[in-house]
Design a protein around this nucleic acid. Structure first.
Lengths: 276, 276
DNA sequence: GGTGGGGAATATATGATATATCGCTATGCG
DNA sequence: CGCATAGCGATATATCATATATTCCCCACC
């Protein structure tokens, strides 16, 4: 299977194409965390040579989306429950700074664009299109970091948000519906404080927004309703997660594939644990 | 010139070797901001083929140390005065969060390692070895982010600190001596607040530390004593910057080299078009 | 005679392919 | 139970083909 991904005009080079396609697949958890990636396979599936693939892999690696072990192989980076805390810690730090900068130097016009986003999100909530809400939510936070006017700040925020997107899809295959309305309120509080340039309130609001999100998601995780789910459609992840609970429980992927169909000796190990 | 960089045991692969060497050279501003990098050249100078170099370039790109324009070329990322603000904004955000986490969960033993670093820095200050002080300073801040226990937080901090290192060397070819003592005091304040787990004080201290640094460096920049200097030795950048102000004013690097002084063919024949 | 646009030449990035080497891992044998 | 070894795929090299942006020349035009 060609790993979906037509080469459209967006991709000026095959390397970009490979990068985008792989990144998308990883984000969507279509390539599941822990899964082993074989460069030659990917090259075949993407219909390009290995060079663009290798370059793409390097980029993904320094974004932390894949892990490579020299001479051994590449695997999709795992997603751990702790990464939820990690994400929100970083995000809190960056956003406290970014939002302050926005309050101080954004034009009314720019603040308006944020307000528009919040309004759009409201619409999606009413329509129960939670996946779209999540996309706009990401854009909202991204916009704040952009308006702050500092390229590195924005870039780092972008990266964290991307990781969050992946974690969110993996553990929650969508979004916590009961969290959405509260989040919208918090967005409005943030917006108001920005307009008023009320920095103390703004800081508190941003912090709370992040902490409450963290809290919600962690609680959900602990309640163990979380489901490490394969490729979730997300596009309409809302309806109470009816999706077939696929049995596919890929065991923690080995670094090397079993030496293929060679006269397999029977119980072999690599079962790290198997002590019976 | 082989671009210095022996392949020692640290480099498990040539790709790692290329990456480390190039990164070092860029950090040291030996490869100057804006400078054009030609893959084939680099491969020759590093004594490897183009593939490891290309992979290294991809990694450097996603770290923002080089800029590539498709089909055109790679240049060392420029360093702007604004990036000073950028760095300290991000750092402030990350460190406020990190230091709080450290205060909350670090063991006395771990706090001790921070205290040791501060003491070591004191020694370097007395000895006027400011370059060493700067190295330890980076380590101090890195350690805080490590002790926070969140991998992504640490990784992002590492990246910002790396950028700062480069900016610092480029604009200030070392460190602002008059800032160092104050910085040490601030370090101690931070440390004390951590020990006492006095979060409000800690937050203020971390913020101030970053803002005062920003202020100092920005003032220095404005006073225009700053000197975009080629490869600074740094190893002993302290003594009042006697270093010869090299004339090397590389003009803003072109994307493509002029097609060189080629023996222009005069008899135009072979111009297919020569319709005449 | 100066000026601006079109087009060729060039250097280089990008991509493909074949081949060689190297390390890791699992296996087989003692 | 440990050591040698085979096989796989990652890593690396070399060579080639293609694509593209840049630059400069030339010439028509003003």
């Amino acid at each position: 299977m060609p790993l979906a991904g037509e080469r459209d005009a967006r991709h000026r080079t095959k390397q970009e194409f490979a990068y985008q396609t792989l990144r998308d697949a990883i984000m969507r958890c279509e390539l599941r965390p822990g899964e082993r990636l074989v460069i030659d396979d990917l090259a075949r599936r993407l219909q390009v040579s290995t060079i663009p693939v290798r370059e793409a892999i390097q980029m993904l690696q320094s974004e932390g989306l894949v892990v490579t072990v020299p001479h051994t192989g590449v695997t999709v980076a795992p997603v751990s429950p702790e990464s939820v805390q990690d994400v929100f810690a970083v995000l809190e730090g960056l956003e406290v700074v970014a939002s302050r900068l926005v309050a101080e130097r954004a034009s009314p016009r720019e603040l308006e664009s944020l307000a528009t986003l919040v309004a759009d999100m409201d619409r999606e909530v009413s329509a129960k299109r939670y996946a779209q809400w999540a996309a706009l939510n990401t854009r909202f936070h991204l916009t704040i970091s952009t308006l702050a006017g500092l390229p590195m700040l924005r870039e780092m925020t972008e990266r964290v948000l991307a990781r969050w997107d992946r974690v969110r899809r993996y553990f929650f295959s969508g979004v916590l519906v009961h969290r959405v309305k509260r989040a919208q309120q918090e967005h409005r509080t943030i917006l108001t404080a920005m307009r008023d340039c009320d920095l103390p309130t703004l800081e508190t609001a941003v912090r709370q927004h992040n902490r409450r999100a963290l809290e919600s998601y962690m609680n959900f995780l602990k309640s163990s309703k979380a489901r490490p789910e394969p490729a979730a459609t997300d596009v309409d992840a809302a309806p109470a997660a009816a999706a077939a609970r696929s049995q596919s429980h890929a065991p923690p992927h080995p670094r090397r594939p079993a030496p293929s169909a060679r006269p397999r000796r029977r119980n072999t190990r690599l079962r790290s644990a198997g002590p019976r």
